[in-house]
Computed example of a mutant assay.
Amino acid sequence: MAVIVVTGTGTEVGKTVVTAALAAVARTQGLDVAVVKPAQTGVGRREEGDVDEVRRLVGDVAVFELARYPEPLAPATAARRAGMDAVRPQEVVEAVEKLAGEHDLVLVEGAGGLLVRLDEDGGTLADVARLLGAPVLVVAAAGLGTLNATALTGEALRARELEQLGVVVGSWPGEPDLAARCNLADLPEAAGAPLLGAVPAGGGTPASAEVPARAGTWARALPRGSRAAGLFPRHPL
């Protein structure tokens, strides 16, 4: 079963574009890809969510959203305030396992960070990864403050004995400041995992809809032995 869980060091760090990049390069390698968003928050019933953005950027990819809540809050909180059922880790696992039997690769994009609550019992994306036995890709911000958030995420993964594939900077600025430039060297030590690459800022804008052609230049190869190895060839940074 080939599954990768994509998490972030927080919100708005570029998880969706990184997920799209993974899906795009996998598609160029002939893999049949499904993308799952366990819980979408802050989006109305008829508005487009993260999986719609992935489909816009990638094209021919199966996308699934398991739960949607209108307020931009943690999934457990958003579900409670909306009077709706929360999505539980085991429900996510069952959906992903079914899709894994139908697709070569399933990408699971979380909401916010690794330990954001999915339900009132404290279930998290980390629990989803543990139950699936799936590796985790961490998407981090570029600038000041990212080292601490990345280190905490890496520590949480190791404490749960979860495999961390590495870190991708989700939005690399066109004119990086000193902190961002230094972070390229410091992020691997903070994460306890390799820096796999960086997505240029604006990588998910309509003007950059050629994601399938460009995504392979955004990062280095994933570890050998993974069925998804080589999704990210070496990037130019």
Rank of each mutant, 00 (worst) to 15 (best):
V5C: 03
G8R: 07
G8A: 06
G8T: 05
T11I: 01
A20K: 10
A23Y: 04
A26T: 07
R27P: 09
T28E: 14
T28P: 00
G30Y: 12
V33E: 09
V33H: 10
P38R: 13
P38S: 01
P38F: 05
P38W: 09
A39Y: 12
A39K: 11
Q40R: 04
G42R: 08
V43E: 07
R45T: 14
R46W: 09
E47R: 13
E48D: 08
E48K: 10
G49R: 13
V51P: 01
V51R: 02
L57E: 12
V58Y: 06
A62H: 14
V63I: 15
L66I: 08
A67H: 11
R68D: 11
R68L: 12
L73V: 02
L73W: 07
A74C: 09
T77Q: 15
R80A: 15
A95P: 10
V96T: 13
E97I: 04
E102P: 11
H103Y: 15
H103I: 15
V108F: 13
G110I: 09
A111R: 08
V116L: 08
V116S: 00
E120I: 00
E120Y: 04
G123E: 10
A126W: 10
A129D: 04
G133H: 04
A134G: 02
P135H: 04
V139N: 09
A141M: 00
L144N: 07
A151P: 11
L152Y: 03
G154F: 02
R158K: 02
E163R: 06
Q164V: 02
G170K: 03
G174A: 10
L178G: 13
N183I: 10
L187T: 11
E189A: 14
A193K: 08
L196E: 03
A198M: 06
P200F: 10
G203H: 01
G204Q: 07
G204F: 10
P206Y: 07
A207I: 01
S208T: 11
S208Y: 00
T217P: 07
P223K: 03
R227H: 11
R227W: 15
G230I: 01
P233Q: 06
